[in-house]
Amino acid sequence: MNTIKMQNARMVERLRPILAAPVLRWVALLGLCAAYLQGGFDKAADFSSAIAEMNHFGLSPAAPLAVATIAMEIVASILILTGFYRWLGALALAGFTFFATFVANRFWEMAPPERVLAANSFFEHLGLVGGFLLVAWYDLRERCHVSDP
């Protein structure tokens, strides 16, 4: 058993410089925010489609909600990527994603095969919510200088 622990410790020490690299953390955060940046910029570039999307999901007033969505997706992503109030950006996107998931992926109201695709998307989005909550948790923990229990 000690041999396994020693091998794990050596492996962790070899990986530490890679895993601790700030660029790796930033790339991971960019991956988490990529869909929101792309969505925000696409909606801003084609605002009439953004309004049509709001109308499709029965959200009104469509234009102000489209503006709010664009701002949320872009500004919260920038907060996360820059580290300026990262926790706030992460909580904002977690809440936004949670709400949007229940609006856009109502799989329980669908018949197969659409139900399967919507259910997959629903739970994938809940995974994003969890990722954003972890980002907020780690950022707040770092700011408060709290160590692991």
Rank of each mutant, 00 (worst) to 15 (best):
M1Q: 08
N2Y: 12
T3P: 02
T3D: 15
M6L: 15
N8Y: 15
A9T: 10
V12A: 15
L15P: 00
P17S: 08
P17I: 04
I18D: 03
L19N: 11
L19E: 04
A21V: 04
A21I: 09
A21C: 13
A21W: 14
R25K: 15
W26F: 13
A28V: 11
A28D: 10
L32C: 09
L32F: 06
L32K: 07
C33T: 01
A34L: 15
A34G: 10
A34E: 12
A35N: 09
Y36D: 02
L37A: 04
Q38V: 15
G39F: 03
G39L: 01
G40R: 00
G40I: 00
D42L: 13
K43I: 05
A44P: 03
D46N: 15
F47Y: 11
A52I: 12
E53K: 03
N55F: 09
N55W: 10
G58E: 00
G58D: 05
L59Q: 05
S60P: 03
P61L: 04
A62E: 00
P64F: 07
P64M: 08
L65V: 07
A66R: 00
V67P: 03
T69M: 10
S77F: 01
I78G: 05
L79C: 12
L81Q: 05
T82N: 02
G83S: 03
F84S: 12
F84D: 09
W87F: 08
G89Y: 03
T97M: 04
F98N: 06
F98Y: 07
F98W: 06
A100V: 11
T101Q: 02
A104M: 13
A104T: 13
N105A: 10
N105V: 10
N105E: 14
F107D: 00
F107Y: 02
F107I: 02
A111T: 06
P112I: 05
P113Y: 01
P113R: 06
R115T: 10
V116C: 06
L117A: 15
L117I: 14
A118C: 08
N120C: 09
S121G: 14
E124M: 13
L126N: 05
G127R: 05
L128R: 02
L128G: 01
F132Q: 00
L133K: 05
L134M: 14
L134F: 14
Y138T: 06
D139S: 12
D139Q: 00
L140Q: 12
R141W: 10
E142F: 01
R143I: 11
C144G: 11
S147D: 14
